[in-house]
Design a protein around this nucleic acid. Structure first.
Length: 279
DNA sequence: CATCAACCTGATCA
DNA sequence: ATGATCAGGTTGA
């Protein structure tokens, strides 16, 4: 199915906001619900196999006015304005609540690569076999086989992960109940979950509940804030600085800062280029 | 409210 | 090859 949408699949699916997409050849393969989905970039959008148009458009937040958002981000900060040209078509996604929270509990103190390994391992062990790929497990699927969790090597995230699955399975926590809350209330509720601190709460608020004014500050963004803006301090201080600086779509600005810095980092690692040679 | 050690695994460095 | 060091957020003292 052909979808017309302003999106760049490489940056959107590869930037680390979602962890189940893999690039094979010129296509991206991922899992949405119980469907293996394959997306292939075209000039004016992408070819989509494996899910409905409605579903993929919702996942891609097709209702976001990308140009308007980019313009506001650019107007708020000249460095972000510079970065946007290298990030055209990067979209924030709208991920499933349960899957996003569970995934980001695993993401604590882990790099993108390791997060991917842990998530795939949880899916392989507890999810449904969809033919090559596995669905992200339901809370019930995790609880019913929880004695097998050590196979996934989640480290100290293991207990938190299982207990969160249990709380959703027994109804103590309903991820859908945070739908529609304003940003501050949403984060407040998320922080009550064991293993969810300020950074993870902001990731979930941004990537699942659509709070584009959430600004997750991880180690990489912390470095960028210090290097480019001279900003230092506690999470709260940096978050306040960033929201003031980058405006109401600062979640998008965060992605530009993060994505550009990760490209820079990979170039540095590949050899030659020094961190300061651009800029 | 701020500081800090402990937590677990995988990658990278000697 | 082997061991040391480091990267990465949250928790609880």
């Amino acid at each position: 199915m052909r979808i017309v949408l302003d999106v760049d699949l490489d940056s959107t699916l590869g930037c680390g906001q979602a962890h189940r997409w893999r690039k094979a050849g010129d296509s991206w393969e991922g899992v949405l619900g119980d469907s293996v989905v394959t997306l292939t970039q075209t000039e004016d959008g992408f070819e989509c196999v494996g899910c409905s148009e409605e579903r993929i458009l919702s996942y891609m937040r097709a209702d976001d006015d990308l140009n308007g958002i980019y313009e506001e981000c650019a107007a708020a900060d000249p460095y972000v304005a510079e970065l946007i040209d290298g990030c055209r078509g990067l979209r924030i996604l709208r991920q499933d609540h349960w899957e996003c929270i569970a995934t980001y509990i695993l993401a604590v103190n882990a790099n993108v690569k390791r997060i991917g390994t842990m998530v795939e391992s949880v899916c392989r062990e507890f999810g449904r076999d969809l033919g090559g790929r596995h669905s992200f497990p339901t809370p019930e699927e995790i609880v019913s086989k929880k004695e097998r969790i050590p196979i996934c090597k989640l480290g100290y995230r293991e207990g938190r992960f299982v207990r969160f699955a249990e709380s959703v399975a027994n109804g103590a926590f309903d991820p859908d109940s945070l739908e529609g809350l304003p940003y501050g209330r949403c984060v407040e509720e998320l922080l009550k979950i064991e293993g969810v601190g300020p950074k993870v709460a902001d990731c979930i608020a941004l990537f699942s509940y659509g709070h584009l004014d959430a600004f997750p500050i991880d180690a990489r963004i912390g470095h960028v804030l210090k290097e480019k803006y001279g900003a230092e301090g506690s999470y709260k201080v940096l978050a306040e600085f960033s929201r003031n600086r980058f405006g109401r779509y600062c979640g998008y600005s965060q992605e530009f800062l993060y994505h550009s810095d990760s490209i820079l980092a990979s170039q540095v690692q590949a050899g030659g280029l020094q961190p300061n040679s651009i800029s």
